[in-house]
Design a protein around this nucleic acid. Structure first.
Length: 398
RNA sequence: GCUGGAGUCGUCUAGUGGCAAUGACAAGAGACUGUAAAUCUCUCGCUUUCGGGCUUCGUAGGUUCGAGUCCUACCUCCAGCA
C-alpha cells in the first residue's frame, strides 16, 4: 500500500507526504506533465531546479513511441528520462477516447496510431501491463471517457470505468504479486508455459523488489449523483489512491469535489487529473481535498507566449513589451525572472528562438509549482483563506 | 546610346479585359486545462449608421460600358551589346 502521511487537515483540505519508491512528494503538489517522458522544452535538471517534485507521463504516447518494452529495457521511466524522482503514468484512456477513429467494446478500445496508422487495442489488462513495464510509481486505472456530456453517456462511461477498474486491479495485482517473492506474473511463466520476453524479464527484475501503485479513476462528469456513485464504487476497492477524471473547468468543481472527496477514504491520496492551467483550479482543488495535480497548460501556454504573473497572464508577444525591461514577474525567483527581461523574452518570441520556449516554460512551470507550494504553506499556517482571496482577487482583476 | 526584360498592400508574389486585387512572410490581436498543440483562429488600402462609400497595381495620357491587364510617352531598375 502506498504510504501517505497526513500532517494537517482543515475541512476536506489536507497537507501530507506521499512516500514513493523514488522519493517523497509533499502535498498538495503540482506534478509536471511529461507526456512523452519529457516536459516539453525543459530538461529534468531544469525541472528539479524550478522545484518540481514529480512528473506524469502518458501510456498512450509512450506505447506509440518508443514502446513500453524499450522503456523497461532502459530501466523504467525514471531511469530512462533521468528524472530519478517520483513518477506517475496516466493510463492513456483520455488520449485514446479523444481520437477520431476509436472503437470501444467491453473488452477495450481499438484505435490507430496518430503517427503511422498502426492498429492498437488497449484494454484494462494491456494498459496495466504497459504501465508496469514503463514502471512509474503511480499508475492510473484505464478509464472510459464519455462521448458526450449527456447524463446517459456519462453513466455508461462511468459504469464501464467501474467494470474496467476491477480488471485493472486484478491485472495490477497479478503483475506485481500479492507479496514479494510470490509473484503471480512469474508463476504464469513457469517452465512449460510461455517464457518471459526480454522486456518482461527486465521489468520483473526491476520491479519485483519494488512497489508500483494503482489509482482508481472517479468519473461522473458534472452530475453529483453519478460522482457520488463513482466515488462510492472506487472507495471500496483495494487501490492506493484515486484519480478524479473528466473535469474540464473550475465551474462547479467545488461542489463536485466536495461530493467525491467526502466519500473517498481520507487516508489515501487523490490526484485531480489534468487540472491546473488556471490558478483557481489549484486553490479549489486543494481546498476540497485533492493532493496532487497535473496539467499541460503551463508549458503549452509558455510555448505559445502566454506567461503567468500575479496580475493575470500576459502575452509576451504583444508589442507593448518591446521596450519593457522589467522581469516577466516581479518577486519571482525563477531562472527566467532572475536573469531576463520582458523585452528580451519578447525579442526571443518574435524571432522564434528556441530559448524563448525554454525560458517561458521555466517561468510558467515554476509559477504553478510554487503557487501550489504556497497553498501547502498557507494550509500549514492556517492562512489559506486569506492567501486564496488575496491571490485570486489580484490574479483575476482586470 | 542601342536591344531585351521588369515595376502590384511593409517584403516577396499571383494576376493577360469584369478586381479592393492571390498566396507566403512580416505586423497586430485572441485562444489554449489527464498535449496528434514550437499549435490554432481572426485582422491586415482608407472609411462606414456594416447596406455601403472612397482611393489604389511606377507616372501621365489614351482605347473600352469596363484597364493591374491593351496602346502611347515618360521615369526607374535589371541583363546583354556598345
Amino acid at each position: 500500500m502506498l504510504k501517505f502521511d497526513i500532517e494537517k487537515k482543515n475541512g476536506l483540505a489536507r497537507v501530507g507526504v506521499i512516500h514513493t519508491p523514488h522519493g517523497d512528494i509533499k502535498t498538495p503538489a503540482f506534478v509536471g506533465a511529461a507526456t512523452r517522458a519529457t516536459v516539453k522544452a525543459l530538461t529534468m535538471k531544469e525541472m528539479r531546479e524550478l522545484g518540481s517534485q514529480a512528473i506524469l507521463a502518458n501510456t498512450y504516447h509512450l506505447i506509440l513511441a518508443p514502446g513500453s518494452d524499450l522503456i523497461a529495457e532502459a530501466g523504467g521511466l525514471a531511469e530512462f528520462s533521468s528524472w530519478h524522482g517520483p513518477t506517475f503514468t496516466d493510463s492513456g484512456g483520455f488520449q485514446i477516447f479523444s481520437l477520431p477513429d476509436v472503437k470501444i467494446t467491453e473488452n477495450g478500445a481499438k484505435f490507430k496510431s496518430h503517427i503511422n496508422g498502426d492498429k492498437f487495442e488497449m484494454t484494462p489488462e494491456s494498459s496495466m501491463q504497459d504501465q508496469w513495464k514503463i514502471g512509474a510509481d503511480v499508475h492510473m486505472a484505464f478509464d472510459h471517457l464519455a462521448k458526450s456530456e449527456s447524463y446517459d453517456d456519462m453513466k455508461i462511461a462511468m459504469e464501464r470505468t467501474h467494470r474496467w477498474l476491477d480488471r485493472c486491479i486484478a491485472e495490477h495485482k497479478r503483475l506485481l504479486g500479492e507479496s514479494k517473492g510470490q509473484n503471480a506474473f512469474l508463476e504464469d511463466h513457469k517452465p512449460g508455459r510461455a517464457p518471459l520476453s526480454v522486456s518482461e524479464k527486465k521489468a520483473f527484475d526491476l520491479y519485483s523488489c519494488q512497489e508500483q501503485y494503482l489509482y482508481a479513476v472517479v468519473q461522473g462528469g458534472t452530475f453529483n449523483d453519478l460522482r457520488a456513485e463513482s466515488a462510492q464504487y472506487c472507495a471500496g476497492k483495494d487501490v492506493d489512491g484515486f484519480g478524479i477524471g473528466g473535469v474540464f473547468t473550475a465551474d462547479g468543481m467545488d461542489e463536485m469535489l466536495q461530493t467525491v472527496n467526502s466519500i473517498l477514504p481520507e487516508e489515501k491520496p487523490r490526484h485531480l487529473l489534468g487540472m491546473g492551467q488556471e490558478p483557481i483550479d489549484l486553490f479549489v482543488g486543494a481546498e476540497y481535498g485533492c493532493d496532487t495535480f497535473d496539467c499541460v497548460g503551463p508549458t503549452r501556454m509558455a510555448r505559445n507566449g502566454s506567461l503567468y504573473t500575479l496580475d493575470g497572464r500576459i502575452n509576451i508577444k504583444n508589442a507593448k513589451f518591446k521596450h519593457d525591461y522589467s522581469p516577466v514577474m516581479e518577486d519571482c525567483d525563477c531562472e527566467c525572472c532572475k536573469n531576463y527581461t520582458r523585452a528580451y523574452l519578447h525579442h526571443l518570441f518574435k524571432t522564434d528562438e528556441i530559448t524563448a520556449k525554454v525560458l517561458a516554460s521555466i517561468h510558467n512551470e515554476h509559477f504553478i509549482v510554487h503557487t501550489v507550494d504556497k497553498i501547502r504553506e498557507s494550509l500549514l499556517n492556517d492562512t489559506f483563506s486569506e492567501y486564496k482571496k488575496e491571490f485570486l482577487t489580484r490574479y483575476y482583476h482586470d
